[in-house]
Amino acid sequence: MTTFPSLLRLFRQFLAFFGVGLAAAVVHYGLLIGLVEGAGADPIPATLAGYVAGGVASYILNRRHTYGSDRPHREATWRFALVALVGFLLTWLFMHLFVDALGASYLPAQVVTTGIVMLWSFLAHKAWTFA
């Protein structure tokens, strides 16, 4: 049975994850927009490059501020990378679907994709990467 204090801890942890996600999103979206608007890159590879750059920021900040993990880096890093790989593939899949198949603008498509991948990442990191 879940108690109120454990739900409150989970909510606080999710808020920390969301804050870290905002910082990582600034990195991700900054690179995405810079590559598309500044360099004329295709949005799909540009968002994948942004995802990787944001992922590095996410690992560093989530390890310390969200999960307070003491799991050694040699264990947490490969776990984080595996979860990130699934997120990378989800990013590619949904951006391809929204932008290429449905013709959506890349920024609104990225916002929806970010929400989907954020939920996946939070649950996977909580249950496995930093558990």
Results as ranks from 00 to 15, higher is better:
residue 1 M to G: 15
residue 1 M to L: 13
residue 2 T to S: 14
residue 3 T to G: 15
residue 4 F to Y: 04
residue 5 P to K: 02
residue 15 L to Y: 00
residue 15 L to I: 14
residue 17 F to C: 10
residue 18 F to E: 13
residue 20 V to A: 07
residue 21 G to V: 04
residue 22 L to N: 13
residue 23 A to P: 00
residue 24 A to S: 15
residue 26 V to C: 13
residue 31 L to R: 00
residue 31 L to C: 11
residue 33 I to C: 01
residue 36 V to L: 08
residue 37 E to D: 15
residue 38 G to P: 03
residue 40 G to D: 04
residue 42 D to R: 10
residue 43 P to T: 10
residue 43 P to K: 10
residue 44 I to T: 12
residue 44 I to Y: 06
residue 45 P to V: 12
residue 47 T to H: 11
residue 48 L to G: 11
residue 49 A to K: 06
residue 49 A to F: 15
residue 50 G to E: 09
residue 50 G to V: 08
residue 52 V to H: 03
residue 53 A to I: 08
residue 56 V to Q: 01
residue 56 V to E: 00
residue 57 A to R: 01
residue 58 S to A: 15
residue 59 Y to I: 06
residue 63 R to G: 12
residue 63 R to C: 05
residue 64 R to P: 00
residue 64 R to N: 07
residue 65 H to G: 03
residue 67 Y to C: 06
residue 74 R to Q: 06
residue 75 E to Y: 06
residue 75 E to A: 15
residue 78 W to H: 13
residue 78 W to I: 13
residue 79 R to F: 06
residue 79 R to Y: 02
residue 81 A to V: 12
residue 81 A to T: 08
residue 84 A to I: 06
residue 84 A to G: 11
residue 85 L to N: 03
residue 85 L to K: 06
residue 85 L to V: 13
residue 88 F to Q: 11
residue 89 L to S: 13
residue 89 L to P: 04
residue 90 L to N: 07
residue 90 L to P: 06
residue 92 W to M: 11
residue 95 M to I: 05
residue 96 H to G: 07
residue 100 D to L: 15
residue 101 A to Y: 10
residue 102 L to K: 09
residue 103 G to I: 07
residue 104 A to I: 04
residue 105 S to F: 11
residue 109 A to Q: 05
residue 111 V to C: 10
residue 111 V to Y: 09
residue 112 V to M: 14
residue 112 V to R: 09
residue 114 T to Q: 11
residue 114 T to S: 12
residue 114 T to L: 14
